[in-house]
């Protein structure tokens, strides 16, 4: 007979077993496979050969000339990484700049109107990402809504080429991820005590100083959460750069897909996936650092 304490612990394990099993099989398992694949040799057409090799990791950063074997930095890979990070940061910044006033607006409405506005913000989640992306495409393509409108207005005479540029990817991602920024910002502003603004105003602060020294520091957890929620999926974005960026303006997600598809280099694809994972983990680490440092109860 085991004591009541032990049986309680055993019960706990038993109850969490399905969740743990699912986590193990569905999350950790595949991750382990990807990690293992990145250290194997590539198969002739696809798949892997079970021979230990560092070639894939080498190819992440370097390339070997096919004729004389000289080693140089893999500019193409690096530029894709850089573009991904750059576009993700820009997306985060744009969604923050648009999301903060939006969240502020919603949080300062009367309760009934607030519910309506929040409802409107969540509507895009009901529609498939691909469809939303094609909708943006319809707006920005050469014969699309935006160009037709500007030409009819006489602002421009020739359509502006937006589609298949980094700008198009940026617009698309900002559109898709904006709600993920607005919601945590709203939650933070909703809890904000607006009396503090009066207190700041009373104590000789200008409006700008109140924003910088009172509002932003207090809603920082919401800002950090929103930025992470936008930055992480932006970095791994696949559909939006594929549809709006065309074939040339790849991001990491597309590049990884390429290795598993046409490129027929599974180990390289696996290694790139691990790199993406490391960048995301890094971002999350910064998040926990920043958010725990200012927690008064920490």
């Amino acid at each position: 007979m085991s004591g009541p304490g032990r049986s309680k612990a055993a019960n706990g394990w038993l109850l969490s077993a399905p969740a743990l099993l699912l986590l193990l099989v569905a999350a950790s398992g595949p991750l382990l496979i990807v990690a293992v694949y990145s250290f194997l040799e590539k198969g002739d057409y696809s798949g892997v050969r079970w021979i230990l090799s560092g070639e894939a990791w080498f190819r992440v950063l370097f390339e070997r000339d096919i004729f004389d074997g000289t080693v140089s930095l893999a500019d193409a890979n690096l530029s894709i990484f850089w573009r991904s990070v750059k576009l993700s940061l820009a997306t985060t910044f744009i969604t923050f700049a648009l999301g903060l006033p939006t969240a502020w607006f919603i949080a300062t409405r009367p309760p009934k109107a607030r519910a309506v506005w929040l409802f409107l913000i969540t509507i895009p989640f009901w529609t498939n990402l691909l469809i939303r992306t094609f909708a943006i495409m319809e707006v920005i393509r050469n014969q699309g809504l935006l160009n037709t409108f500007l030409i009819n207005l006489g602002v421009i005479s020739e359509p502006i080429q937006i589609l298949y540029t980094d700008t198009a990817v940026l617009i698309g991602m900002a559109y898709v991820y904006l709600p993920l920024m607005v919601l945590p910002l709203f939650a933070a502003i909703d809890r904000f005590d607006f009396k503090l603004i009066e207190a700041g105003y009373d104590l000789y602060a200008t409006r700008w100083r109140i924003l910088r020294s009172v509002v932003l520091p207090i809603i920082k957890p919401g800002i950090v959460a929103g930025c992470i929620l936008v930055f992480v999926p932006s970095l791994g974005a696949y559909v939006t750069p594929r549809v709006l960026g065309g074939g040339k303006n790849m991001m990491i997600g597309n590049f990884i897909e390429l290795q598993f598809g046409q490129g027929q280099n599974w180990p390289l694809g696996a290694a790139l996936s691990m790199v993406l994972l490391v960048i995301v983990m890094g971002a999350l680490l910064i998040y926990t650092r920043v958010s725990s440092r200012d927690d008064p109860h920490a």
Partner: peptide, 13 residues
């Protein structure tokens, strides 16, 4: 002119 607020309105951070 400075105010002492009913709810104090101290800056929590």
């Amino acid at each position: 002119v400075n105010t002492v607020f009913q709810s104090y309105a101290l800056f929590p951070h």
